[in-house]
Structures are given as C-alpha cells and as structure tokens.
Amino acid sequence: MKTPARILADQVNRIQKSGRFSPRSASLPTWCPGCGYFGIHQGLNDCISRLGLPLAEIVTVSGIGCAGRYPFFSNTYGLHTVHGRALPAATGVKLANPNLTVFAVGGDGDGLAIGGGHLPHIARRNIDVNYLLFDNSIYGLTKGQPSPSSPIGTKTKASPYGTVDKPLNATLMALSYGASFVARLFAGDPKGITEALIEGVRNPGFSFFHIYTTCVTFDKNFKTWTHLKEWTHALSQDYNPNDLRRAFNEVLNDDFSLGVIFKRDI
C-alpha cells in the first residue's frame, strides 16, 4: 500500500527522471571525454537548480566553438548564434524581456578575438547578462589553433614555430571595462563556479566569469589539468572584492587566484 509520502516520493522520482526540471538536456554533451567544459556545465547547472529558476525563463546564448555548443546541452531556452556574437544577441534578449535570466557562454576565440569588441560595450552598458568565458587558450572546434590568450611560444599546427604575440588577460580586461561583477574560476572546481555564479546572477548588471579550463585534445603542454591544478589557488581570506584598486593589484600580481575578484557596491 502506498502512503502519501510514498506517492510523493514516486512523483518526485518520476519528474526527476523525466528531466523536466533538470537543467541538463536530454542530449548528452558532445565534448571530448575529459574536456574541462563538463566541470563548467556542472557548475552552471547546480547554480540554476540551487536558485530554483524556472528553466523556461532562462535563455542561454552562445557563439560558435566547442563552448558555443553549450545551449544544446541545457534544458533552458537556447540561442546559438554565429561566431563571436553571443553578447549582442544576449543584450537583445535581456532588453526585450527583462524577466528572463540570461547566460552568455563562449570560448576565448569567440569572446576575445572575433567578438572581442563587444565585451567593453556590454560591460559599460551594464546589461544584466551573465557571461561565462571558457578560457582554454586554444581554438578547440577548429582543431587547435592559438587563441588570443595563448602564451608566447604556443606551438600548434598553425604556429609551428611558436606564437610571438602577448596573451590577453580576460579578468584584467573586464575590470578595465568597468564590469560590475568579475570572478575568476577554474573548471576543475565546479563548486567554486556554482558559488560565484549564484552571487553573480544576483548582481543586477553585467557579470563576468573568467573560467580557466583545458582542452585535453589540443593542448598537451600549457593549460593542462595538471598545470591548472598546480597553478590555481583561492584568493586570500581577507580579500575584499569591493575595492577596485585592490582588484587591479590582485590581478596584476597573480594570474591564478580564484574567487570573486570584484563586485561593485550597489
């Protein structure tokens, strides 16, 4: 005989199985096994679940790249645009319907190269979009060319003698552009991602999440799991994210401290 509690438990079970309230879509991510993006996926999904946001009121906007595929793996509304244009489209979505929670996701090529001109502007307009930059310092989808965040000397098929240009520091850029919320995170720490996202989603303006991640397929030397784990570490205990000068100092002095770097007092 089924007790009411039992019936309820069954219902919950069924709903969970149906995936209707799970941020994960029915299609499994097509990323390479071991790709850092799985960790980001988990971090964002947990954030959505924990905030209890209705999935139909979330739009995930992306550009093109391995990272750009993200919307297909999510049960929210998705807008998979062209290379580099997630932020303008996200701007349109948010302004059209401010009730929606908008995530923009994309790779470092998408966001720092072809779409690099949009970051300053969404930041200065302070549009309430949460932008997750998946920084693996490589062009994954096009099979391993250097990206604007690749360190000098990166050797790929397209740069057989090593790159010569200085890499961009996305966290520093976002601070300079006046983003009202800036966090630096690591795909190997989904919990940290979730925590920062929860805080960032609550920020009623543009929130930038610079997420170090790895491309296991095309980067065997630099941003590998081993290196990233070794290099990254939490911000110091007494760090105050409300102080912009301190934030600049932090980012200039340390490339790998993780956490909420800056948060504008409201």
Binding site: T81, T91, K94, A96, N97, G117, H118, H121
Partner: peptide, 23 residues
C-alpha cells in the same frame, strides 16, 4: 541603444525578436 557596430546591432535585433519584442 546605440551599439558598437552593425554586427552587434543586428545581433541584438535577433536577440530581441527571439525573446518576443519588435525591434
């Protein structure tokens, strides 16, 4: 909204129509 270029302008137009607003 004066955008940063024409690419972002059409991008935002698509975004708004996608979300249901005439733009």
């Amino acid at each position: 909204v004066q955008m940063e270029d024409e690419i972002s302008s059409i991008g935002a137009v698509l975004g708004s129509f996608y979300a249901g607003a005439r733009s």
